[in-house]
Design a protein around this nucleic acid. Sequence first.
RNA 1: GCCGAAGUGGCGGAACAGGCAGACGCGCACGACUCAAAAUCGUGUACCCUCGGGUAUGUGGGUUCGAUUCCCACCUUCGGCACCA
Length: 774
Amino acid sequence: MFAYPSGDLHIGHWYAMTPPDTRARFMRMRGYNVFFPIGHDAFGLPAENAAIKRSIHPKEWTYANIERMDKQLRMMGNSFDWRAELITADPEYYRWTQWWFLQFLEAGLAYQRMSPVDFCPSCNTTLAREQVQGEDRHCERCETPVIRKDLKQWFFRTTAYAEELLDYSQLDWPEHVKTLQRKWIGKSEGANVVFHTEAGDPIEVFTTRPDTLWGVSFMVLSPEHPLVAKVTTDAQRAEVEAYQIQAKNQSDMQRESTDREKTGVFTGGYAVNPASGEHIPIWIADYVLMSYGSGAIMAVPAHDQRDFEFARAFELPIKIVIQPEGLELPAPEEMTESVQASGAMVNSGPLTGTPAEESFETALAYVEEHGIGERAVNYRLHDWLVSRQRYWGAPIPVIYCSSCGTVPAPEDQLPVLRPDDVEWLPTGESPLKLHPDWRFVSCPKCGGQAERETDTMDTFMCSSWYHLRYLSPHYNEGPFDPDAFRYWMPVDTYTGGIEHATMHLIYTRFFHKAARDIGVLTGDEPMLQLRNQGMVLGEDGEKMSKSRGNVIAPDELVARYGADTVRAYLIFFSRWQMGGPWSSTGIEGNARWLRRVWYMFQEPAEEGATEQTLRALRRKAHQTLKSITWDFENFEFNTIVSSLMELLNEMARAKNAGAWGSDAWNEAVRLYLLMMAPVTPHIAEELWQKLGYGYSVHQQAWPEVDEEACVEDKITLVVQINGKLRDRIMLSPGFSDEQARATALSSPVIQEALEGKTIRKVIVVPGKLVNVVI
RNA sequence: GCCGAAGUGGCGGAACAGGCAGACGCGCACGACUCAAAAUCGUGUACCCUCGGGUAUGUGGGUUCGAUUCCCACCUUCGGCACCA
């Protein structure tokens, strides 16, 4: 478990942590040694925002929050191992975050290049995406429109692992998380094809449709493409440059949106289609992103919808080169959309007539034979930008020397401490740049004058390896103790919100694989089993927020109901994977449940139940144990509490019928407390001791199901006619299909309904159901 | 816009490999206890109805003896979209 110290503990924290805690406790009772750690992801933007707003040092704000949240975390009654608590903002931790950076640098997995940031010219500061708001992309603080500024920044080569990241064979992860990651990584197979401008400059494009090469009627470059200036004619220059400026300040998401009118500008330049030899105009348009592929595309309007819309908007030619079988295609000028269906190649020079199923490979072979391109795989995944122009993060441990260039900070000098006495208010520079003592150092190589990198690291860096630090949070010889690694890793069960699917969970997998290849650790994956919780919404069904005034504060609930009731309600009110709206009347039901348990187990009653009552009680107790065991294993927490409630209702009936004092009653009570223990640990322990079982319920083994006790005396045979329920017949278990069929057909209700009808078929579901088809 | 998830009574939800839709809880109604109230306990609670049944799991189709469950299309809501974590 890993909490961001944002202030007070939120009900969402409880939801993320308590159901997994019940499972951790359950697994311990089943005999596993469960490590359930807690820590704080303490660097990041909110600390700086709060600091600016309240004029308080980010460090002071963060550590005060941690202190408060630790107290609140202890109120949850979770079985955290506090000995392993860690804080990523501690030098003891970020020393090793920096160490990882140096390993990646040495392994060639870290590099620098120019990359744009969002910048507010009025606040004079780099902005995070979430600080940029609205269609016009303005600064959240001062509403000034944001500009894009190019800075030299550090990247990790996540793309080097794109292919391996697509392999989930070792993982028990939810299908939709894997799907999200696959889409995020975005593998496409095709070809890199080289066009040339009329002046002879090569323009490489990536295409997934080499079979449409003869249908290319124009090219589109990203407005940032390096060749734009060169191909633009003087007549078009003013228009092109104006468009470049406009495109620059749009987000990629805005630019990729397919429901906008296509915009673009003709550069005046032409390129030559390497297949057909045709001369085609070169345009620039913002729907082509520099960050994907080569930043240039060959446009095939007849067979690509975005290209089609662009061609229509600017009256560019459309040429059909794929003829789907049996489909009458309109003339290009009458088309209303591109033709996506596969088909034989037409109007394609030497490849005309190639059938659909061969077109991709044949076209690819043609491209390679003629030396105009080659087979290529492209990924949507970017390299990971790790530089942040911020104060509250781990400094990137690099020194720039005028003679030696980029020099890693020597390992024995880690951590590169983040100085406390800086101006952390926005100034337009990385705050660390304004700290002269800190910034200027001597070069570790030549001893000459040098300066430190003043950017800090993305906090995703801290959270990519925290599970390793939990193993040995105070270990000094390395980021983790290898013995502990061998004992515990990989993480067996990892839980978190679905919002982490594509970022944190890709970063941490990349990190692990990179660390494996560097030789620091073993294994291919950091976390084997993943499960996601949903979100607790406000009583109005909306996301909780201070501005909506629908925030539920767990502290007040604990004061009013106690931690056990809050825990029980949280796992009861909805499916954990789903989440849902809070209900302040709903929690009353769980408070009532615990009060009922308390009195029912302790207040004596009349004795003398029938054998039948006791057998029914025992049956229900063991059936409940069976289903709860399944539920814990499968993260189906809400039915754990409802099953316990059902059992309690059965126990109330049995107690009224004189079960008190019987062996069956005592067994049911004992099982009940053991089953409650993971969910409501405090009240279970209290009752366990009051009833004389000693210390402690939490050290007991999970009980065994008595399968024989679970067997029903009577089974309801459901009889349907044409799939509609017509009768229910009570039978002793163990009847054959033939008996079921005979019994069903001889039922008076069925006989009456079948009067004068012909039976076409009788379907028997063994031990359950008979369906008569007429 | 793209990607993902979800739509079941007045409400939250259950139905574990396609086989009794609505477990459990909330709310509500009635009753018991009480001078009274709260708490507690008990009973009932999808809709329509000619009391035999009929209709119901976002909408429309499909597969099947049988669909909340599988397939297709659509609608609505929620989450993510790379510098929030």
